[in-house]
Design a protein around this nucleic acid. Structure first.
Lengths: 216, 216
DNA sequence: TAGATTGTTAATCGATTAACAATC
DNA sequence: TAGATTGTTAATCGATTAACAATC
């Protein structure tokens, strides 16, 4: 029973879109919104929006719609975006730096508490306020963190494919329960660790294949 | 009839994984591989691998398997990765720089022929051999390109969400047939332009929600 | 040959869409 | 009240998985 709550992944993936739309509406001073409206704006069917919103547990009122405040709160709560998630990031290349410098995920609770790289010329340098720590010192750093009553919940992997599994193993030892993997690798992980792969090549493949195989 | 060839998106998305595995096997000197082997390595069912490979038009031999050379060629051809795709990249923040500095997509045919930003302090600077051109000058640049017999086929959008639609419009005017959109926006585009959105927040949402809603 | 593997047709599963009753 | 909207059950659609025949 892997997914006892029966939450469709596609629905979860659509929630951030709704959230963005709702926050915009809220910023414009709106208080209430209907599925019909959301669906129109995003080019979907209203029934799909309704089903998706239902998984967050929120209920609307017939003829009226949903209270925006309540909906925003429910989505953020469902996604875990209203609490901070302590994370390590490993691999301070361009991609890793992009994530560290981008504010968007911080707004969703991402709290980077350790940045690592195995390149000695990078170690000691700062990236957006984070000092780069030698990868080899990760477990010592975790001990130190635990000593302060803190812990790490998530690992972000932005290293080349060949190094990804080794990094994942050490992140697991560090106690993470989730891994956000940007490397194009299928990771071997214990059951209690959730993994989400960012599919960049996959996305590129869909685009180029559609450009190529379009009718013709 | 949007998808006349009936090519499942999930299958297309799995092709890059197979390609990676096959190129590794090729590098090790192997000549032939079976679906059973591929499936084992990637933790899937062999029948799914077989169906996926079938969409590239390649056929295997019972008891033997597939010729790796042939398979690599067929996948690369199907994805359009054995030909160069001229592209503009707009938005030279960390994410844009990451894409420009990463060699992976070049190996898949991505050929950046123009890099743009609207920030005047960035314009004129170089990123990985590309001079940053003012966004306002894009259409003039296209004319110049066309004068040399070149054209642009793809646009990569790595600007903040608010600017994405404007950028998309100008890319369409520049003649792109495909857009690779990293901004969290639903773009309005003419029918002849294919769009693929990179789902970063969506991916983060799946991870955090699974970390949060795990049984419990 | 026997057995492993491909290719294909049928069954299952899950997500989307349609239909409709409930309700404010 | 009438009509818009929600919530839910049923039908459809597409992808995955199972079953099996073909073949080297």
């Amino acid at each position: 029973m892997i997914n006892p709550k029966n939450l469709p992944i596609p629905s979860i993936q659509r929630l951030p879109r709704y959230l963005r739309l709702l926050e915009e509406a809220k910023a414009r001073g709106e208080r209430v919104v209907s599925c019909t409206r959301i669906a129109e704006d995003l080019g979907q069917l209203s029934v799909q929006v309704r089903k998706d919103l239902a998984i967050t547990g929120v209920t609307g009122r017939p003829k009226v719609g949903y209270r925006i405040d309540e909906l925003v709160e429910a989505i953020r709560n469902f996604l875990g975006w209203n609490q901070t998630t302590n994370a390590f990031l490993v691999g301070v290349g361009n991609l890793g730096s992009a994530i560290l410098n981008y504010g968007g995920f911080v707004a969703h609770g991402l709290n980077v508490v350790g940045v690592f790289d195995s390149n000695p010329t990078l170690c000691g340098k700062m990236v957006n306020g984070h000092k780069i720590i030698p990868f080899a010192e990760m477990l010592d750093y975790v001990k130190m963190l635990n000593g302060y009553g803190a812990s790490v919940q998530m690992g972000v992997i932005t290293v080349p494919a060949v190094a990804a599994q080794e990094v994942a193993d050490k992140l697991v030892k560090s106690g993470v329960r989730g891994i956000w993997n940007y490397a194009p690798t299928v990771l071997e992980l214990p059951d209690h660790v959730v993994c989400e792969n960012v599919k960049l090549s996959e996305s590129f493949a869909v685009l180029t294949s559609r450009m190529r195989n379009r009718d013709s």
